[in-house]
Design a binder for these strands. Sequence first.
DNA 1: CCATATAGTTTCGACTAGCAACTATTTATG
DNA 2: CATAAATAGTTGCTAGTCGAAACTATATGG
Lengths: 190, 190
Amino acid sequence: MISGKAIEAARLLDRLQRLARAGELAGDLNPAQWDALRYLARANRFSRTPAALADYLASTRGTVSRTLASLEAKGYVRRAGNLRDGRSVEFTLTKKAADTLKQDPLLLVAKDIEKAAGRGLPDILESLREMLRTAIARNEGRAFGICVSCRYFRANQRMGPSPHHCALLDQPLSDADSEAICVEQEPRAA
Amino acid sequence: MISGKAIEAARLLDRLQRLARAGELAGDLNPAQWDALRYLARANRFSRTPAALADYLASTRGTVSRTLASLEAKGYVRRAGNLRDGRSVEFTLTKKAADTLKQDPLLLVAKDIEKAAGRGLPDILESLREMLRTAIARNEGRAFGICVSCRYFRANQRMGPSPHHCALLDQPLSDADSEAICVEQEPRAA
DNA sequence: CCATATAGTTTCGACTAGCAACTATTTATG
DNA sequence: CATAAATAGTTGCTAGTCGAAACTATATGG
């Protein structure tokens, strides 16, 4: 029913993950904090909230709230209220966080992958994408894909620095926005 | 220097890991406890110690000691002293643990992998093996490969239920032993 | 025989984690 | 429009990970 190869692959993934995790435990940040910083570095302004982060991490609002509080106390993130919705808060990275992310231990993993996969990397990548899609579907999670690939993305709707448009939130989007990940993203094709 | 594809692959791996981890948080066990049970299920008798487990998990003796204590309190593992070395203890799984492992959430990951990788699975597997080798080398960790693939493994040295032999520890090995993972394993080829 | 190494445990402080109770909005509905 | 229900976020609780370091006990090597 489940092949031995698939089980071995799952075990390898699990072990790889443990090693990567161990690398994230050194220093001032722990794995959850690293994941939060990485997320905030890539998420658009509609998605830099505790709730979206909790969704992304398959965690809870309570846990994420504490993680963000400790990142704030350590000076990695800044908190700002949302003018439209008084309940919501938005987090942004500080310069300290941006500098820290340049030494992201995930880059070491990427280096290992590059070294190990060689010319097979494109195939591996496609398989990993498919695995993630499958896993997300099973967990009933959100995709968090990039804005430009979303069914609600409308390119070049006007002139100026934010030429694109989100048809779901009815908000203008810059080029940078369009490359960020979004909590609301839904793939274009049905 | 590091390709975008390698970084994307690392991110996918990280996210995949978060989802898998979330699946391990439900129920009576947490991710570290699942990892400990899986290890004990596969490790030979020379390797079912806190120190070996700590090595395997890239953790510390202190943490593993606590993890094993809580598994013992919950009835998943049993503790036994080592007759040769009074300092050492050996852990074995209870029936409860064996039954629990039949519902291992890692099997769901394996199912996802099978579904997503399709006929590409053998290639993926080979890449994952290579990635793990690379990551282990970088972390100066032990391989924990299976006994039969070890340079110290000697097949069919005698008659009876334990025909094989470990040339490092000078101990007889059964067929089952030879398929278990070992803290001392070193690949055959130099 | 004693110094040193090794196996394991324990304590401490920071933190993740789920759960549930809680506050403060916002939105929906009668 | 007033109130109920939903939503965003925080906080108290308990269990447990995690590193670091102190600690106990046993082995081993000069």
